[in-house]
Computed example of a mutant assay.
Amino acid sequence: MEVLDILNLGEFAQYFSKMAMFPVFDLAYYIVSILYLKYEPGAVEVSRKSPVASWFCAMLYCFGSYILADIMLGHSPIDSFSNNNHILLASAVWYLIFFCPLNLFYKCVAFLPIKLVLVAMKEVVRTRKIAAGVHHAHHAYHHGWFIMVITGYVKGSGVALMSNFEQLLRGVWRPETNEILNMSFPTKASLYGAILFTLQEVHWLPVSKGTLICLFTLFMATFKVIMTARHSHGSPFTFIESWTCHLLFSSPLEAEDAHHHHHTAPMAVPAPASPAKTKEDLSEGTRKRKSKKAE
């Protein structure tokens, strides 16, 4: 605590935790969310053939976590659409990203330096949503620790958890992309963050909520910006998760698994290694090649 007092982190954390998210940070959240929607295969084509379906998909990307959390807690799933300002702001972002002349708005927000700033701002909103989800569940189920964790987890990663339903709106069905089977870094971090905020909510974690929000936001924003800049889909939790699963569930370590595949794979001419790319990068590249052919 003395270190926090010297750095004056406590007052800054309290100010940061109470800082309003609308409209600046929410705007960044909607931009990045709908930007990732445009990266999805077939999303641009759907927006031309059925703008209504495209708009619904965009709203799920922006408000899917709220909808899923409301369903879990027994509230009306359309409560999220009662805030006209948020709906209008998200709709304006959707229109500009998909229909702006010459794709100017998309090119501006997809420009890497600007995109990195927007990604960092989105993680500020994600952390607030996790904390708010845990706090809301704590009031409804005072001793339901698992409910608090699940609600915070859904608030932080509900968009990814609803991805298969969103795919159906676009006429796509890819069950292998289920987020539970292949958890991305934001989904894993949302789960771990929900656990931390639950421990803080029940006073098992000796730290104030403002400080926890500040530190977790810094962690999320730092790693997400680095991963976005490097076009990486890895996770800083991989090493710990590998050893934990090995000890608790007898799962093979990643190094052992790679060594096994190396010896059992048929002999072939080695191909040059290519850097790992995210799903969004691959989809964007495919779309660019199609547009060049059309030209």
Rank of each mutant, 00 (worst) to 15 (best):
R289D: 12
T211H: 05
G152P: 08
S208T: 15
R174L: 13
V124T: 04
K115R: 15
L35I: 02
L247P: 03
P77W: 12
E40L: 10
A58P: 00
L247N: 10
L4A: 12
P236V: 14
L60Y: 04
V207H: 02
G285Q: 14
Y29I: 03
V52A: 09
I180P: 05
P41L: 06
V125H: 01
N164H: 07
E2D: 15
L88E: 08
K38Y: 07
F111C: 07
S76R: 07
N164M: 11
G42S: 14
H143C: 08
F249S: 07
L282A: 08
S251E: 09
S291I: 12
S232Y: 04
L9H: 04
E166R: 10
K18C: 08
G285M: 15
M21P: 00
A58Q: 00
T264Y: 08
S163Q: 14
K209S: 12
C214Y: 09
W145A: 11
F81H: 07
L88Y: 14
V269W: 09
I180L: 14
P186H: 05
H246W: 14
V117N: 06
M72T: 10
I130C: 11
L247V: 15
T286E: 10
K129W: 04
L161D: 03
N103S: 11
F111N: 08
G193A: 12
A273P: 09
H262R: 13
S250H: 14
K115D: 07
L218Y: 10
P270D: 13
S47L: 06
T198E: 08
E166C: 14
A20I: 03
E201F: 02
Q14I: 04
N8P: 04
V24W: 12
L282F: 05
